[in-house]
Nucleic acid binder design. Sequence first.
RNA 1: GCGAGCGUGGCCAAGUGGUUAAGGCAGUGGAUUGUGAUUCCACCAUUCGCGGGUUCAAGUCCCGUCGUUCGCCCCA
Length: 430
Amino acid sequence: MGSFQALRGTRDVLAPEISYWQWVEQVARQQFAQAAYQELRTPIFEETALFARGIGEATDVVGKEMYTFPDRKNRSLTLRPENTAGVVRAYIQNKLAAQGGVQRLWYTGPMFRYERPQGGRQRQFHQLGAEVIGSKDPRADAEVIAIATDLLKQLGLTTLTMDLNSVGDASDRQAYRQALVDFLTPYKDDLDADSQDRLTRNPLRILDSKDKRTQEIIVDAPSILDHLSPESQSFFDRVQQLLTDQDISFTLNPRLVRGLDYYTHTAFEIQSSDLGAQATVCGGGRYDGLVEQLGGPATPAVGWAMGLERLMILLQKLHAPPSSPMDFYVVSRGDGAEAQALKIAQALRRQGFATELDLSGSAFGKQFKRADRSGAVACLVLGDSEAESNTVQLKWLQSGEQITVNQSTLLEDAASLRQQVTQARSTHSG
RNA sequence: GCGAGCGUGGCCAAGUGGUUAAGGCAGUGGAUUGUGAUUCCACCAUUCGCGGGUUCAAGUCCCGUCGUUCGCCCCA
């Protein structure tokens, strides 16, 4: 072959699809700004130990999905598989706690996990995430969830469902873990192989096994919700109440267990039925122990992350790509005219008009055909005679009306030109 | 990491061992060397993801490999 191709599980995002990405970023940026969240950008690779300690040694992500490599000084580095650990590291390192109060943060960027690629799952994928660090108020949970649901709604995704659970605090979990192990041990031989393995390592994960027989057994298993301390229970009740007050609907799912060890109390997932096996679009929850776990002061926190590739799959099914149509298409022929055409195109752009310049030098007929297809509202035509008289033909493509304008006066009244463009466009679409 | 399916030009494809590899869309040039439609003409795969094998003969069968899709797994 001899040519290169993007590595397995990575891909290029090109023209029509990219506009969905830009749209999502724009909507998110605006929403976060309105809610007083600051964007932060953290490095794409970090010390391996950050993830191992933050996410948990026993998790699948750390155990078998990380891109880990030695650098030239033989330090173990890892391409971030998620960004909460990195954000918390940044919070600690930059002493954001010292600023007092609550830190509201958001980010977007690539993440890396070595998994078998599948629809909605790549090795390099992108997340958009929000973290609220420094508040133990259940309103923080409700706010951060509301921002996620509002964002999705604003993107037109209205058929998503949310599962909600509480995994309690560390001691609730400890007690529940024991109860679960006690319950499952007699059935050990009937569990699927993965679940048997998890019985000692990470028993809570057995709850979302998809194995039929395991599921039958789990039906009667004790529920985490029966093992919450009174404090955890009332916290969870409050979160639910706050969500209901905002008309955010959810389904209580006591078997929802998140795969990363740092979660405490609130856990939630937003899912779509249009994504096959990779149904989760957004997932998150509270992680009150993580800041301390990573060497900072004991600090409560909540957050979530959205999978952008999955979001794009849904958006592409839902609507046509958001387009940004051209205002002008500049057609020219002949040396003098072509040079003037470039100058005019740049002048229009400086005034804020979206302007495409035809560089083909082909016959006017061909250029007009392209002008038509470009979606531009108007066409500017320069040939030898225009070049000589320093004029330009302004042709409105919808009506076919064409007038001669002096090049120097074309942009004299940009506001009125803008108005004409807007009007021509609205009669076109109306 | 495991299982199954698929891989023909930029896109959608026909083709199921006997050939010169259909067709459509898009693109480029021309009929029309200064005006968008339609129409017409021409060009656009020495080759069927890649490598090897079987056969007189392979896009078609076999093996390997790469990619991709679906499920498991995992999670966003």
